[in-house]
Amino acid sequence: MTRYAMITGASSGLGLALAEALARRGRNLILVARQRDPLESIAIELTQRFGVEVLFRACDLGEPLRLSGFLLELEESERHIDLLVNCAGIRSYGHFLAQEWSDEQDLIEVNILALTRLCHALGNAMAVQGGGQILNVASLAAFAPGPWMSSYAASKAYVLHFSEGLREELKRTGIKVSVLCPGPVRSPLRRIPRLEKGQRCLSPEEVALYTVRALDKNRALIIPGRRNRWLAFSPRLLSRWVTRKLAGAINQAYCPR
């Protein structure tokens, strides 16, 4: 039976880099993103370069009915997905009360609800198949409150804690769960010029290479970059009020204006 790795948010940035890194290793892929045209081009390119089978599906994960239809298609196709990479995500900047509620709702739908639903649906399928692997993409923002990015940081904290809890729950089923917490990545989703100018950002390709190697070792928590690992640990050393103040100052300084 042909096995596939399914990657959401695969049309650009880190999702695309992960798709390429897995294809380079000979993995067949199912790519998911909102826009069909970029996916089709990527599928053709990866197939030609690496000789793997690349399927794709345009689906807005923020729309529950479309996600339901997609999951039904997967169930009926009986394709064996042994690796799920939840990379799709939405980021928000600025004062919470100044945001459009529809944008905040989209963030919650994609970053939390769609991710959780995909883990539930494909996790059940993996359990029947005898095992598999799930990679959820969180962020360094998951380790501290995020003033001026409050919804985003909270959504990534959910992904971090959910993934770690799920890892313990699913051990006996043969399903391995890991969570990736990158720092700022040079990508369309996380383009922060002031950070990139200071050369603090890893490229999507660097993060993807580090990640696939960590998956081979079944690491629970994947944080590329020594500096980022220190930043993830540092909130434990500080008082909560200090952490809030520092995070707020950093976010105000680096968020786009």
Rank of each mutant, 00 (worst) to 15 (best):
M1Y: 06
T2G: 02
R3M: 08
A5Q: 06
I7R: 04
G9Q: 02
S11M: 06
S12A: 08
G13S: 13
L18R: 11
A19P: 10
A21V: 08
A23D: 12
R24A: 15
R25A: 05
I30H: 04
V32H: 01
R34D: 09
Q35L: 00
R36N: 13
L39Q: 00
S41E: 10
F50W: 03
G51T: 04
L55Y: 07
C59K: 00
E63V: 14
S68G: 11
G69I: 15
E76Y: 04
S77T: 08
H80N: 15
H80R: 15
H80P: 04
V85K: 09
I90R: 04
R91Y: 08
Y93Q: 10
Y93E: 14
H95Q: 15
L97M: 14
A98Q: 15
Q99R: 09
E100I: 08
S102N: 08
E104Q: 07
D106G: 11
D106L: 15
V110D: 12
L115C: 08
R117K: 00
H120Q: 12
A121W: 15
L122W: 10
G123A: 01
G123Y: 01
M126A: 11
Q129W: 08
G130K: 10
V137D: 11
A138P: 07
S139T: 12
F143L: 00
W148D: 07
W148K: 12
S150G: 15
Y152S: 12
A154P: 07
S155R: 03
S155I: 00
K156Y: 07
K156M: 07
L160V: 02
R167E: 09
E168V: 05
E168L: 13
L170S: 01
T173A: 06
I175Q: 14
S178W: 06
C181H: 07
C181N: 11
G183M: 07
V185T: 04
P188C: 11
L189T: 01
R191F: 11
I192Q: 13
P193L: 05
G198P: 01
G198W: 11
R200Q: 15
E205K: 05
L209F: 08
Y210F: 14
V212Q: 02
N218C: 14
I222M: 08
I223R: 10
R227E: 15
N228F: 12
W230T: 15
L231S: 15
F233A: 13
L238T: 01
R240L: 13
W241D: 15
V242W: 03
V242M: 10
T243I: 13
T243M: 07
L246S: 05
G248N: 03
Y254F: 14
C255G: 13
P256S: 12
